[in-house]
Write a protein that binds this DNA or RNA. Structure first.
Lengths: 209, 209
DNA sequence: GATTGAATGAAACGAACGTATGAATCAAAC
DNA sequence: GTTTGATTCATACGTTCGTTTCATTCAATC
């Protein structure tokens, strides 16, 4: 094969451990041990722990970005003014799709995205590449067209809201659910709930100034 | 005074550094240096770094919980079926109030809450005490009364959505704003936007099964 | 003024961390 | 069969971490 197998095994182990314990909470030793590889393999294949994290983030984010982009293309090919619900679904849907992958793999993926988005380290956020930004800008333009009453600032606020709901929903999947708080339902139900919730939110008329 | 002054200086420094760099990204040495205290002072006054973080979290969360509780009391004293918008405001408002405190103090507070909520460490989330859970349960009951069409699971999902939007909105205040993404507006505007956004979302009819 | 208990200070401990090094291994090319 | 380049391995280095220790300071009490 083109790249060594230990390389992908390290990527898998790192993705899992980074998702579960965060970047700083995961040691290179733990990663290589889980991957069944030698400690020095990370340095050899990726250069450093930070570059390994960047590779993990790329591998996770890229298919999501591609799906978001393809969804918007399909929508705009039909009409320049798609309904808000379909824009929301095209934007948020790919984040949920990762979860329906049978076992807990998707949950880990989501957890990893939250880890990246919320990590206080300045370097971590830079791992979400400019591709992500360009996708967001395309959706911004589409939303702005069908929601003409909103100021750009408020529209950006609402788009952050979409990311927030889809991301933090996954948050408690891996953590102790609060007592009395039903653990979040994975899969199709959460997806429907999120689309409903967010479509109503995005469609709200702006507050009177 | 009852407690030593270095104690609160350590609490202040820890709150700031934990908010900026996360729990694991902050060393006891950095805290005591910023506080102008000795390294051993943390051990003496708090026992350990973890217990210091718990004390910081308590100090931040308690007034918010109290405000949320008082807001609900005031609302329910008027009518058992308050409008959704006022429930949302009573629940999410206190999270915004911390921000209007002049300088960046409130932003740090919000950032710290996100740090606590999103930290992958199992122990960190336990620092949000049972008081927080009881407040959430009270609001859950109030929302359930005025939104009778929702299943408990979907209502919990929506309440997590409120937390998500109020929390992640603050996230990018301290981080590099994405290029092309207008930096979030602090204070009153974000508060109005959030109430509007979330009221519409909470009021949405449940998706047809 | 001596005593006491809380608080602070300087220094060190052992452990864990990311990274670097150089030898050993292995499959393929000649 | 030897050579070569890529990969794996055991090991060590230097740093930083949370924590502990014990001497010292200091204000209050007798």
């Amino acid at each position: 094969m083109a790249t060594s197998d230990t390389r992908t095994q390290i990527l898998d182990a790192a993705e899992r451990l980074f998702a579960e314990h965060g970047y700083r909470g995961t040691s290179v030793r733990a990663i290589t041990k889980l991957a069944g590889a030698n400690l020095a393999a990370v340095g050899y294949h990726f250069g450093s722990k930070a570059e390994l994290m960047a590779a993990v983030a790329r591998r996770v984010v890229e298919p999501i970005n591609a799906a978001q982009c393809a969804g918007l293309d399909k929508l705009l090919a039909r009409t320049p003014d798609p309904p808000v619900s379909e824009l929301v679904e095209a934007f948020a849907g790919p984040l949920f799709d990762e979860m329906s992958a049978g076992d807990e793999g998707g949950a880990r993926t989501s957890r990893l995205i939250v880890t990246i988005l919320s990590d206080p380290a300045e370097e971590v956020r830079s791992w979400t590449g400019p591709a992500e930004d360009s996708v967001r800008e395309r959706y911004f333009a589409a939303f702005a067209r069908v929601l003409p009453g909103l100021s750009p600032e408020e529209l950006w606020f609402r788009m952050r809201g979409i990311l927030a709901v889809t991301a933090v929903d996954r948050l408690e999947v891996h953590q102790q659910p609060s007592p009395g708080c039903v653990s979040p339902v994975a899969g199709e139900a959460a997806r429907r709930w999120a689309i409903t919730f967010l479509t109503a939110a995005m469609s709200a008329p702006p507050p009177r100034t």
